[in-house]
Design a protein around this nucleic acid. Sequence first.
DNA 1: TAATTTTTTTAGGTTAAACTAAATTATATT
DNA 2: AATATAATTTAGTTTAACCTAAAAAAATTA
Lengths: 222, 222
Amino acid sequence: MMSTLSISEENYLKAIFHLYTHDAGIGTNAIAHHLNTKAASVTEMIKKLAEKKLLTYEKYQGVVPTRKGFTLALGIVRKHRLWEYFLVEKLKFKWDEVHDIAEQLEHIKSERLVEQLDHYLGFPKLDPHGDPIPDKEGKMCAMNCCCVSDIKPNSNAKISGVKNHSPAFLKHLEKMKLTIGKTVKVIDRNDFDQSVELVLNHETMYISKEVAENLLVKKIKG
Amino acid sequence: MMSTLSISEENYLKAIFHLYTHDAGIGTNAIAHHLNTKAASVTEMIKKLAEKKLLTYEKYQGVVPTRKGFTLALGIVRKHRLWEYFLVEKLKFKWDEVHDIAEQLEHIKSERLVEQLDHYLGFPKLDPHGDPIPDKEGKMCAMNCCCVSDIKPNSNAKISGVKNHSPAFLKHLEKMKLTIGKTVKVIDRNDFDQSVELVLNHETMYISKEVAENLLVKKIKG
DNA sequence: TAATTTTTTTAGGTTAAACTAAATTATATT
DNA sequence: AATATAATTTAGTTTAACCTAAAAAAATTA
Ligand SMILES: [Mn+2]
Ligand SMILES: [Mn+2]
Ligand SMILES: [Mn+2]
Ligand SMILES: [Mn+2]
């Protein structure tokens, strides 16, 4: 009744899910770029997923995930983030080392495994990068955050996540001690290079435009 | 330099390793049966693995794993058994539920992951079925065990493993409380049906020929 | 609107891993 | 030794997932 998906199919579904939820247009090229394949391959796979009612597709009109496709994608994201949490909290990996391994682990097929793992980890709500972990029903907490570059000067904020997940960026943040949970005060934005001045642990520091745009925070009163 | 193996290649290597170390002849048919494929598919794969110097092969003469192939196979077995241990000890799976999941997990590619997992688990020496877990260098403890049917009457023995790993057999053993570590006294073997009489927890019980042949024990003095 | 550029699809091929059926080699039986 | 049986290999297909190059459609720009 529920023919099991191949790893490729799962990866396409997940890519479409991500593009869909990040509002970005879900064009054939965008999907191809996201998966490191070519547009022609995407068109083929899209047809197969449409056959399986995981998304709706009309030629040249792009795709939209169906309820079923969306739910399946959420399940893969759930696994990915639970495994990342496991790798960091239990196996002592750094937050910049876990994504590639989770890309493999997310395809392990066993409902029991996911539920037991979730239980074992204490039903975490957020993964090591601050991304919400969907629960068994696919529900996850809303992330009302914005990037540092959108914060008004002279306000306090708590670091809550990253937009860019590249190891290079993550390592850079860690070196600067800009890790999740830390509180910062945004002092000012420099018009010349869009760098941002802020205070972290009572010390003044400057972060580049690139960092400010990819570091997510939540405003806090004060 | 070390082209990474596909999941299929890994499964063939592992099957050959198992047949090889259990003395069974490594015929094309035996491998095919072990992997649920057909002999023709085996011949093809064998050629590829021989190309990669993971085994030696001469037409109609069968195969022998090379040092390199043997080492790689050991690495997969190591991962399989470490994951089984993890599933039972940390995620509270039963010993009859872990094999299929470990069949998937054993193919996750990350040296770091295996070493961290091993460390996290406390470098276990045996998996939930009593099979030895190879260490990082491929060394594992020798299992000087034999099946209950080979034990002389009136001797004590400790349950140390299973020959048959099927969930049905494992569940059956658990129901009869014949679990690893338990001590039993072998009383007698019945000539009529080869069933074996033994004492477990001060109670007399009979086990069938099939059970006696697939339950592994270590003799103990007394 | 017409021309140009970009995006998407189609057509046709490749590769890994499977399969069936037929041919070949090895082993066992008479 | 001749024959029958079993194991193995070869030949020829299939399928999923990719690819390149060309065609078609859509979006931009002039
Ligand atoms: Mn990730
Ligand atoms: Mn993450
Ligand atoms: Mn197993
Ligand atoms: Mn085992």
